[in-house]
């Protein structure tokens, strides 16, 4: 079931269209990567989901209902441009922000105690925010975002400002939350975290969605049909071994080893290729080159051809 259905949402500012009839389905308990170059319209879409601004066209369903203010407490949002009241004490501020999301004071206190203990932050409670380092502030902010146990968590570049250890801590928490059923929208430019965490993605470019679907399907779609082969033998022998259906893209020799990249022209399988080669060369390693999310991102944005998985 889809937790969030974004249907032909448009947003127009005075001099440009920020979103052009964007439709995205976000399944329950998914980690959904919202990708796109700077200025593509991601933040506009996120703000519409958070009801900070309204769409100029289209509609959004949250759990089957039209999005309305009662959903605010079911959403947790960590904006990219984030901060805290610098002069306020950490604990007091965390309670305040939690209460704005509808928690009672006692509830907020109980939950904060749990998280502050878990992240070993108890000693920060009475400190002013400006006394904390940037990473510490980010941690406080992360806790405040997830404290009210939202059904939908929207994180915009959540890992900036964290060292690798803390970034992993946050990643683990996110995976844990997902397991408990939380749906997570992750907007980031760090493609390695998309590969690590996301089950689904949507790519927005120039106000339009140009790609979406499950990560494994997207990758399949972007298969380059290239095989990297390391072998012993001569390149002439290798070339001779290839029959129709395969094309030698690149070859290079190093000592007694040689490398080749072969493109699959029609839908032959990897086994077909191996079978052809085995008679003439000794295969040392063989693998299909699978595009990284980084490659997919760059290729899609540069070509910007609307594709659907």
């Amino acid at each position: 079931m889809n937790l969030l259905s974004i249907r032909e949402v448009s947003k127009i500012y005075a001099n440009h269209k920020a979103l052009d009839s964007v439709s995205i389905e976000i399944p329950e308990s998914s980690v959904f990567g919202l990708l796109g170059p700077n200025g593509a319209g991601k933040t506009s879409l996120i703000r519409i989901i958070n009801q900070i601004t309204g769409p100029d066209g289209g509609s959004i369903l949250f759990g089957g209902q039209t999005l309305n203010p009662s959903h605010i407490s079911a959403i947790g949002y960590l904006p990219e441009e984030r901060g805290l009241y610098k002069k306020m004490e950490v604990g007091e501020q965390a309670i305040y922000l939690a209460r704005l999301k509808g928690l009672s004071r006692a509830d907020a206190l109980k939950k904060l105690r749990y998280w502050f203990e878990k992240f070993e932050m108890q000693s920060w409670w009475r400190k002013k925010v400006e006394e904390l380092s940037k990473g510490m502030q980010q941690k406080v902010q992360f806790i405040v975002t997830i404290l009210h146990e939202p059904r939908l968590l929207i994180l915009d570049e959540p890992f900036t400002g964290f060292d690798p250890i803390n970034a992993n801590l946050i990643k683990d928490e996110l995976l844990g939350l997902r397991q408990k059923g939380t749906t997570i929208i992750l907007s980031t430019h760090r493609m390695e975290s998309v590969e690590e965490l996301c089950t689904h993605i949507a790519l927005i470019n120039k106000s339009k969605k140009i790609l979406d679907g499950q990560v494994k399907d997207v990758r399949k779609q972007f298969r380059s049909n290239l095989f990297e082969i390391e072998y012993k033998g001569t390149s002439v022998g290798f070339a001779n071994a290839l029959w129709t259906g395969f094309e030698l893209v690149e070859t290079r020799t190093q000592d007694d080893h040689a490398f080749a990249i072969v493109k699959n022209l029609n839908n032959s399988s990897a086994n077909d290729l191996l079978r052809q080669l085995l008679n003439d060369v000794e295969v040392i390693s063989f693998r299909e080159r699978i595009p990284t999310m980084n490659d997919i991102f760059i290729e899609s944005v540069q070509n910007n051809k609307p594709l659907e998985a």
Partner: peptide
């Protein structure tokens, strides 16, 4: 201005109306 420059404002208006 303080809320704007400290960038807390977006956090808050995701919970309350401006």
């Amino acid at each position: 201005i303080e809320e704007k420059t400290s960038r807390i404002v977006e956090v808050i208006i995701s919970s309350v109306k401006p």
